[in-house]
Design a binder for these strands. Structure first.
Length: 268
DNA sequence: GCGACAG
DNA sequence: ATCTTGTCGC
């Protein structure tokens, strides 16, 4: 893949005010409407995984039909960030790419892309396929300036992206989910509030999505995913697409596989 | 000043 | 995110 908006490369040397200013520009350039030619129905997961079988990584097959979805995830060592992108077609791995970058700034809520972004760019630049959709770890439009890491990366490459987070950064759920049991498949809208300074309060900027749930509400329950559009995807579609990439686990397959891959790149 | 806060 | 083993429950 190729960066098409180099002005938005996440330079960790910028001061916070400059980072925030860049995010406002990115949000203005982002498209929170469908512009991707992807149909959730066209996305397939590996049926062997859905059946609970263990699957060996498939050999690279760059040819074929059907949309390509890539998951991206990061892990950290001493003072470097490692990012891995895993591209899937029909639920099978067709390519993996690794990227690295020194860790130069601490984690600051709202400025995540400036800490991890360089490693992600490094990984995606070495990816030979241009995925029809990128699934990033973290928020997209659910962000103080509607420019979370999924939106930032999407605009950098002008690629359709969605963000999948495990926790809510900002915004207000339209229904109380606190300790409430959501059935698998349920979604609850997340609306912008005063924390989101770039759009009117009440705008739907994402969803809680219950990708997986236990059968008995009494004791244990799974926390829902936090899904939001990154770039070139509408809010409802973002959740539809993420739902289509899930295969019985809490995390979407692209994310799970990127997670595992970055794990053993970082590990042994 | 206090609270909230992706990874 | 990361430091880290076993363990309770379905």
């Amino acid at each position: 893949m190729e960066v098409v908006r180099p002005a938005y490369l996440p330079d960790p040397a910028l001061d916070a005010a400059a980072m925030e200013a860049m995010q406002r520009d990115i949000a203005a350039d982002a498209t929170f409407a469908d512009d991707h030619g992807l149909a959730p129905d066209a996305i397939r997961v590996d049926d062997r995984i859905e059946a609970g079988e263990s699957v060996e990584p498939a050999q690279a097959t760059l040819d074929g039909d059907g949309p390509v979805v890539a998951g991206v995830d990061q892990a950290f060592r001493e003072d470097e960030a490692v990012s891995v992108a895993v591209a899937l077609r029909g639920g099978r791995v067709i390519e993996r790419a690794v990227g690295r970058a020194p860790l130069e700034i601490p984690y600051v809520p709202g400025l995540l892309a400036f800490r991890e972004g360089s490693a992600i760019v490094d990984a995606l630049e070495s990816l030979s396929v241009g995925p029809d959709l990128l699934v990033l770890d973290g928020s997209g439009r659910i962000h103080y300036r509607e420019a979370g890491i999924a939106t930032h990366v999407g605009v950098l490459f002008d690629a359709p992206t969605v963000g999948v987070a495990k926790n809510l950064l900002c915004g207000t759920p339209v229904a109380d989910v606190e300790g409430r049991y959501l059935d698998a498949g349920e979604r609850v809208g997340i609306e912008a509030n005063e924390e989101v300074e770039t759009c009117p309060a009440g705008t739907t900027i994402g969803h809680f999505y219950q990708s997986r749930q236990y059968d008995h509400p009494e004791r244990r329950h799974v926390n829902p995913l936090v899904v939001s559009p990154g770039h070139r995807v509408a809010t409802g579609t973002a959740t539809d697409l993420v739902a289509a990439t899930c295969a019985g686990y809490k995390l979407p397959e692209p994310t799970r596989l990127a997670d595992a891959a970055v794990g053993d790149v970082t590990g042994e």
